[in-house]
Write a protein that binds this DNA or RNA. Structure first.
Lengths: 132, 132
DNA sequence: TATAACGTTTACGTCAACGTAAACTTTGAA
DNA sequence: TTCAAAGTTTACGTTGACGTAAACGTTATA
């Protein structure tokens, strides 16, 4: 039996291009412990898992999370060697995040509604001011 | 005919308490042109409209918007003396914001799903590790 | 009247999240 | 072989969003 293994990997510039960020940004995330790529020689080598983490970090950024927040959330996905105490605090942390996200959902729906109103007003103003 | 007018107003500390922020924060927003309260003597006096603007700013913050972004969005609500050109660029800006918000909605729903999975894993781990 | 409680301005400090520059190494193609 | 492209480390700079401290004015009430 032969299981073929196609080890996928990425260079730092691969990820930069894909996500439209700079090398500085990626190295910065590594400095903060959000990424820990292996090395070939002195060059960084990223796995699909690293790439996923990066995607999660950027998603967090779009939601206004700090890098530290993102680090904690991402760590939630890898329970790894957490003991029971940690599991309970983890569950609490998860619920805290969920509460924040639900607040955001509410905020967004209100903002979307406001934008709809604003746009409607614009359209009306455009029709009314056929002169000018 | 007599229209009774109960002019509602707020002091800076009123708003600080209501929204749980500092005076420094409110004055900072004023420095950036997001608020422009009137004065009685040298003290700032805030109207319900000012209060609404503040609420919108803080909502923007929860969504990860910069103060500059919030300023622009809030200005969308007050078309005021905008001419037709401005109205069209305004409509474009509104649609840009809407796109971003929809992206956020998508991000949030994914994150919520991830958190659900993470919590489920925690619960399983808790049951499995009845020992330890 | 004095002393809190609240307001003000001015200005330097801080922290996160990178930007930017310098100086260097490694590697593949001409 | 040389030279351009891509990689590296180190370190100071910048921007946004306030914090913090100093020094001062106003008002109410004990």
């Amino acid at each position: 039996m032969h299981s073929s293994t196609v080890t996928v990997e990425y260079s730092i510039s691969d990820l930069c291009k894909e996500f439209d960020i700079t090398t500085r940004t990626i190295r910065h995330y590594e400095d903060l412990g959000l990424l820990s790529p292996s090395r070939r020689g002195q060059s960084r080598v990223y796995t699909p898992s690293d790439r996923t983490r990066l995607r999660l970090i950027l998603r967090g950024k779009r939601l206004g999370l700090s890098l530290e927040d993102s680090r904690q959330i991402i760590d939630m996905y890898e329970p790894g060697k957490t003991n029971i105490n940690q599991l309970n605090t983890l569950i609490d942390a998860i619920r805290v995040q969920r509460t924040k996200l639900n607040q955001q959902l509410d905020d967004i729906s209100k903002l979307l509604k406001d934008l709809n109103d604003a746009e409607a007003n614009c359209v009306i103003a455009l029709k009314t001011n056929g002169q000018n």
